[in-house]
């Protein structure tokens, strides 16, 4: 968390306002002010992550639109990459994490989650779009601990089963978190396909990764 009192509250409030209105220059000003008095990791964990989590909660509650989630994630991702480049090293050891779009041609959801994770200072392997067998092989080859799968279409969501079965058959203990529209419309679907968790928003995805990282690699 960030040290300090009123100045932190003010920075947090300013960042939330700037992200809600998608004012990139204002977001940059707030982050530059924060960097002058806090470490990069403190800025990310105390300022950026809570702000993006709030955006995610608002999305889940239907208070903001997906375009706002996307744009706020992109703005933060760009600025973190430019202003706070060394945070991944500062985080130290972290489970290997990868993200993919499974059997689907809709890439926006993955892009949003990736932005939020990168804005939070996490290194994530971006596999792009993959079919189930290739994804299993890639996860095993890269020794991935946490696999995030994004889908839009119901047939693609059902293919998570194949990934789970493929990983299990080869003795992998990789944890799978899923997200995307079919899981929002059917809250039981993620269990049915063998996922270990479901994120309703990109911020949920980030929270799942952080929680599993805290529990240690599987």
């Amino acid at each position: 968390m960030l040290r300090g009192g009123a100045d932190v509250d003010e920075l947090s409030s300013d960042l939330r306002c700037a992200l809600e209105s998608l004012e990139r220059s204002q977001v940059e000003k707030v982050l530059e002010a924060a960097i002058r008095i806090h470490s990069p990791l403190e800025v990310i964990e105390g300022l950026i992550m809570p702000a993006l989590e709030a955006v995610g909660e608002d999305w889940t509650a239907g208070k903001v639109a997906l375009s706002q989630v996307y744009m706020s994630g992109r703005i933060c991702e760009d600025l973190v990459g430019r202003l706070l480049p060394a945070v991944a090293q500062e985080r130290g050891s972290f489970p290997r994490c990868a993200i993919a779009v499974l059997c689907d041609y809709h890439l926006l959801g993955k892009r949003i989650v990736l932005s939020v994770l990168r804005a939070s200072g996490f290194n994530v392997l971006d596999y792009g779009r993959m079919e189930a067998p290739a994804l299993v092989a890639r996860v095993l080859a890269d020794q991935v601990d946490i696999l995030l799968i994004s889908v839009l279409m119901l047939p693609a969501a059902l293919k998570v089963r194949e990934v789970r079965a493929g990983l299990d058959a080869l003795g992998s203990r990789t944890r799978i978190a899923v997200g995307g529209a079919p899981f929002l419309f059917d809250p039981e679907l993620w269990r049915e396909v063998g996922a270990d968790a479901m994120g309703r928003s990109a911020a949920d995805g980030e929270a799942i990764v952080r929680r599993w990282a805290g529990e240690g690699a599987p």
Binding site: G62, A65, L66, S67
Partner: peptide
């Protein structure tokens, strides 16, 4: 849809 874009936009 307001799921995807804010109404004002």
């Amino acid at each position: 849809s307001t799921t995807l874009l804010p109404r004002a936009f």
